[in-house]
Design a protein around this nucleic acid. Structure first.
Lengths: 196, 196
DNA sequence: CGACTGATGTCAGCCACAGACATCAACCTA
DNA sequence: TAGGTTGATGTCTGTGGCTGACATCAGTCG
């Protein structure tokens, strides 16, 4: 007989999402979450650096997928082609089954500025490490940071669309469309009918 | 004879920057900052939503400058031209005299993740309002968000370079260079010597 | 002259979070 | 198999961020 149930971290994450969704983030104390799964506040903070982190723990896998996409690009690929590969790889980390969960999670985050800060911080961290990966491929600054940041932006826009009620396309499909828009952004004259 | 000295907010901001720079952000309590200028902790929190905000209060003017740049662009400008105008306008908000102050402030922020989160949140907020301004100019999604986010990124990269030790060029000059790099990003084939 | 306003102080309290130490089942080792 | 070790947890206690309620008092205005 074990002294404690296994999977404490996962149980805490599930309980936290549910409580945050019903009562709201600020109206839920860390003690509430811990007690909901038969643990104490102290144990909660042993698993998560702070109260917000319970919603973000585990993103390393997503970042890893993004970086794998960077490495998967052919060695002579342009910066934009590399981030295309990275965005595509990252997108496959969110299969359609995850959509309902992602929607719920995002609706919690949207309602709280403190959680938005954490999310933006994670996104910025992704861009930073992606820029480093691009640099190690020989891409120089500021192109590396520019490309990495654009990749994070493209993914963010695509993800927001993927989450939208009624959207049925896969994340990878949407992301590819957004990427195309980015390419058009800097070359609008060729697609436009007016000349300057 | 007045009961209290005027300019409480500004005095708090100055004292906070100094204390954060010497002792560190976490090692400085809100009470420390308040007492340094002869006020109480309660008064500190009446002027600033939270302890971090003392370093960010007043950015509205910067955001305003950015948006003025958006409005200043000719009505038939492309999204990229609009953000070029915005970035240029925002850059003029940081004349060279402000460089030492900005360096000090940024070195404090760099050393603390919580402060970085707040900074990224502000940057994201800027991109969001800029995207709205672009939309009201008739630019559709996702181009509006893409362009706004790119503008924020360009400014961020330029600002980081402007702050660097030894850098002498003006922020506007650097920003213009970074913007050029962004344009090259999505059209590398034309500038490169290899064809694909 | 008295009501009013606005920035501040005082007091009390909640909660996020952390250090120090105890507990106890599972495991390991002689 | 006795006894030490490990690792996740609980208990206790304290600090600091932040807030609501109320008091104070200089200057202002009617």
């Amino acid at each position: 007989m074990m002294r404690w149930e296994p999977g404490a971290r996962e149980r805490l994450q599930a309980a936290a999402l549910e409580l945050f969704a019903t009562r709201g983030f600020e109206q839920t104390t860390a003690t509430d979450v811990a007690q909901a799964v038969g643990l104490t506040e102290r144990t909660f903070f042993r698993h998560f650096r702070d109260k917000r982190e319970v919603l973000f723990y585990g993103q390393d896998l997503f970042v890893e997928a993004f970086l794998n996409g960077v490495d998967a690009a052919p060695p002579d690929a342009s910066p934009l082609e590399v981030i295309a590969s990275a965005v595509h790889s990252a997108a496959s980390f969110f299969p359609d089954e995850r959509r309902p969960y992602s929607r719920m999670r995002q609706s919690v985050i949207e309602k709280n500025p403190a959680l938005q800060e954490r999310e933006q911080h994670k996104s910025a961290g992704l861009a930073t490490t992606a820029a480093e990966a691009l640099r190690s491929r020989g891409i120089t600054e500021p192109a590396a940071t520019l490309a990495a940041e654009s990749g994070a932006t493209v993914f963010g826009i695509a993800f927001a669309q993927w989450i939208r009620e009624g959207e049925e396309r896969s994340l990878a499909t949407i992301a590819a469309d957004v990427l195309r828009e980015l390419q058009h952004l800097t070359t609008p004259a060729a697609a436009s009918n007016k000349l300057r």
